[in-house]
Design a protein around this nucleic acid. Structure first.
Lengths: 217, 217
DNA sequence: CTATTAGCTGACTGATGGTCACCTGCCAAG
DNA sequence: CTTGGCAGGTGACCATCAGTCAGCTAATAG
């Protein structure tokens, strides 16, 4: 099947993992629903046999969790950078908008976040699941330290808590704002327009609302 | 297989649907993950053959959406009743708490809400999906009319919007606050305690925060 | 009593995540 | 240079499950 050399060195094995992640990303980016992305397809894209994939990831879920982890890392970095560049005057609203915009730039990540708890975590060994949570925790703490000072009125740990809460909101908001095309078409009916959810508007309002509340309470 | 008479009258057919819903509820309430609840099992519980179930529901997802719909109806009613009984002084906090408490009384509904967009909607014909959304919309509007007056500072439509937003939050918060037992055990480690999410605390704070923000903004 | 039909059935299909007995390229020892 | 050992790789195979359908049967109409 493959024309490639065998992966013997640890670095070559890392390459295999990357290949598989890239293939998984590519398969998702076509727009195929997660459930319809098969391991056979991902393996084919990676130029490997299906069995080989299972030498590098114990399950489909573990593979896609790795993809999500990578996406999240990039997102946290970007978010911190944008937050650092916020105009001092309108930091709260600006932060909420930066949050929404950086998320919207990562549709694949949004999709995976929606799947995280329901699908991905359902078939994951405890160790992998905990490793992920720990990494997420580190990201949150680092974001807290990096972003907190830019947001007047928020103390230490508040940004981490805000982001954790936002995480929960996103998980629901993502799928709600992007229904299957056919349903979206049916919702175009003006009478049902108010049931449509615009991700950016809703997220900005929600987060800004929390920030206002934080200042007020 | 069945000892029952055949369902000829429309009312008898309604009974069959109810039987299947009851069986589905019972199967979920044992604690089995949604993915592990098979149609064979549900059918067996209902005293029917698997094929028969498909005479009454076009898919597994349609069946569980019906279960969710029933649960939601009851919840909206309870919420409206509790909201009507709120002490005038602390209506906002009281409402947030009523929201959290009524949800916590319905663990099955919470689980299904978490599955709603990711799993259930993925395999639903457009008509059923739209019918559900429409019903949800009606509930929201009725809740808005019933609850809005109890919450000072909120105008018409605000409660509906608040509930829709809360809906998104719940979808993420539910699974986040109830990880698989093994993961929960691993998170008992005090060092990772802050990654634990307490549903009630988090929801109350989030909703109360929004309400504060609403008043402030 | 019989013909008709609508309800019911469960063996069957197709698809997919995951496994495993069997190869085979690669390196190291001789 | 040859060769033995083995880790890397493979794809046929397995189990499972949602969903189908050809055939069966209870119940009613006539």
């Amino acid at each position: 099947m493959s024309e490639q050399r065998r992966a013997r060195a640890p670095e070559a094995k890392e390459d295999r993992r990357r290949q598989l992640c890239d293939a998984a990303r590519a398969a998702l980016d076509v727009g195929t629903p997660y459930a319809d992305v098969t391991m056979a397809e991902v393996s084919r894209r990676a130029g490997l046999a299906k069995g080989t994939s299972y030498l590098y990831f114990p399950s489909k879920e573990a593979l896609f969790l790795e993809v999500l982890t990578g996406d999240l890392s990039g997102w946290f970095d970007t978010l911190a950078a944008r937050a650092a560049a916020l105009p001092a005057g309108a930091a709260h609203l600006g932060f909420a908008e930066a949050l929404a915009d950086t998320l919207l730039e990562r549709p694949r990540m949004l999709r995976l976040l929606g799947l995280l708890h329901v699908v991905i975590e359902a078939n994951l060994d405890v160790e992998t699941a905990c490793a992920f949570k720990t990494r997420l925790g580190e990201h949150l703490l680092r974001a807290d330290a990096a972003i907190g000072p830019s947001l007047p009125g928020l103390g230490e740990g508040d940004v981490a808590r805000l982001l954790l809460r936002t995480h929960a909101l996103i998980v629901g908001l993502g799928p709600m704002s992007t229904p299957p095309p056919a349903v979206a078409a049916a919702l175009a009916d003006p009478a049902r327009a108010w049931l449509r959810v615009d991700f950016r508007t809703e997220l900005v309002e929600a987060v800004a609302g929390w920030l206002r509340g934080w200042r007020a309470g």
